[in-house]
């Protein structure tokens, strides 16, 4: 028994030697172990804070740190490179990002097409065996240009081409054209992704000669490119409007929105009934201004006709001017009665 008591006493002494790791708090702390965060919602003792600020903050922080570390020590531990680590849970505090969440990159026109058609990219070898040079030539990049130069030390001028053409120059221009086309497509893809409206290009710029259909398209597009969309443009005899795939989209004012398909039979019925109603219930519309103008005109015509009929019965007098009937007014011209055959004397001008 003595030994047991001894051991117990020793244990007690050992325990007294260490300070406690438990902390009493009125309200429990909120922890976010993922960010090593503890939030103490207990009231701060303002009296102690004023009288003995630093010591109070020290003890408060110590207690809270102890609580936080107690929680962390409960987490599952691992051993990585002779160090004991704990696996932290996901942080619960949500912090704002530095930059917005990236949107999925919009597909290029080709990618869209390839996706629709199920075309997948084939992996090509970086090096290809060249029979002529008898060596491996890269597909592009370093040493490709040199190989190309070595290969094309002489270029044959084909039969159908003017014998004086510089084939090297032609090749270079073709290459630069390809590069330009690629760049244009890249920019178009960017514009499409950003939903920027780009001016339409009427015709593809091709080499010296354009085909008849291209010319016809160009003429049609040009004719429709007025402010009134070519409504008042004259037509040549036997002129035909350009037709074909993609032409309609090029002509300004020809784009029309297709109506959405009618969703249900009820909706279709309703729309048809509405159309019928609108036709059956059509009442003549009265244009008030026009009607009034017409009425006034009729009255005027009637009056003038009455006047015409009245005049001959009264007609004793010959001539218009009356010397005896002197008035202060100056003699005037035809008084509104127009007769181009009759010569009006008018006012004497000096």
């Amino acid at each position: 028994m003595d030994i047991v008591n001894q051991i117990l006493l020793n244990e007690q002494k050992k325990a007294e030697k260490y300070k406690p790791i438990t902390v009493d708090k009125h309200l429990d702390l909120e922890f976010d172990l993922g960010t090593l965060l503890a939030f103490d919602t207990n009231d701060v003792d303002s009296k102690l804070l004023k009288s003995n600020k630093d010591d109070y903050l020290h003890s408060l922080t110590r207690d809270n740190t102890q609580l936080l570390l107690n929680k962390i020590w409960e987490l599952p531990t691992e051993r990585i490179d002779e160090a004991i680590v704990v696996r932290l849970p996901q942080p619960t505090t949500v912090l704002p990002r530095a930059k917005p969440v990236p949107k999925p990159r919009p597909l290029t026109k080709w990618q869209e097409f390839a996706k629709a058609k199920g075309i997948t990219k084939k992996k090509k070898d970086k090096l290809q065996w060249d029979e002529q040079l008898q060596k491996w030539v890269p597909l592009y990049g370093f040493r490709k240009a040199a190989a190309e130069k070595e290969k094309n030390w002489l270029i044959e001028v084909p039969q159908n081409v003017d014998p004086m053409t510089d084939m090297y120059e032609k090749k270079a221009s073709e290459k630069s054209e390809k590069v330009a086309k690629n760049e244009l497509q890249r920019l178009k893809n960017i514009a499409r992704a950003r939903k920027v409206k780009i001016p339409r290009v009427g015709l593809p710029v091709t080499s010296d000669k354009a085909s008849a259909t291209q010319l016809a398209t160009a003429a049609t597009v040009a004719k429709a490119s007025t402010a009134s969309l070519g409504k008042f443009q004259d037509k040549l005899p036997k002129e035909k409007e350009a037709r074909g795939k993609g032409v309609h989209e090029l002509i300004p004012g020809k784009e029309r929105k297709r109506r959405a398909p009618i969703p249900t039979p009820q909706a279709e019925r309703e729309s048809n009934l509405n159309l019928l109603d609108s036709i059956l219930n059509k009442r003549p519309k009265i244009d008030m201004e026009k009607a009034v103008a017409k009425h006034i005109h009729n009255e005027q015509v009637m009056r003038s006709e009455e006047k015409k009929n009245m005049k001959p019965s009264k007609g004793k007098r010959k001539g218009k001017g009356n010397a005896t009937n002197f008035s202060a007014k100056k003699p005037k011209a035809g008084r509104g009665q127009r007769n181009p055959n009759k010569k009006t004397p008018g006012r004497k001008r000096r």
Binding site: L36, L37, F39, T41, N42, V44, T61, T65, L68
Partner: peptide, 13 residues
């Protein structure tokens, strides 16, 4: 080093 962050006082909330 990643520090332990301790927020004290109900005013934070």
């Amino acid at each position: 080093l990643k520090p332990c962050l301790l927020f004290n006082g109900p005013a934070w909330d």
